[in-house]
């Protein structure tokens, strides 16, 4: 359940940014979460419900951009979508992969008032 500490970090970043913008309410929060970021979305949502209470994010709409993972095959240079670290290259069948995207975990933007 590291998702709870992740949510706590998100609250911290969002409140800091909102206060810097002299806002009192966060209406929306946009997150980038890659499919291979190590975050279990159900666990994140569960932790979110409890953790945002009595913070500026209570009542904020949470938008999540799920970024699909992509890899580059070091052996044959192919680029393709992957779901798991142990997926093989669909062109040559090798496992010499370099992850191009899908590990994102960031607060992208806020709408505050």
């Amino acid at each position: 359940m590291h998702e709870l500490s992740i949510v706590m970090s998100i609250i911290n970043i969002a409140e800091q940014q909102a206060r810097a913008a002299h806002a009192t309410v966060i209406d929306e929060i946009e997150l980038d979460i890659g499919t291979m970021s190590g975050i279990e979305m159900d666990a994140l949502d569960f932790a979110w419900t409890g953790a945002v209470k009595q913070t500026m994010l209570e009542g904020a709409e949470k938008k999540v951009n799920r970024i699909a993972a992509k890899a580059h095959c070091i052996d044959c240079d192919a680029e393709f979508a992957i779901e798991k670290y142990y997926d093989a290259c669909p062109v040559c069948g090798e496992h010499l992969l370099y992850i191009l995207q899908g590990k994102e975990l960031k607060v992208k933007s806020l709408v505050v008032s």
Partner: peptide, 19 residues
């Protein structure tokens, strides 16, 4: 709040594990 502030978009672009 009876006089809501106008809504503003804040670009954050910060890694959650930044700290």
């Amino acid at each position: 709040h009876p006089h809501p502030h106008p809504k503003t978009v804040v670009d954050v672009e910060q890694d959650v594990l930044h700290q």
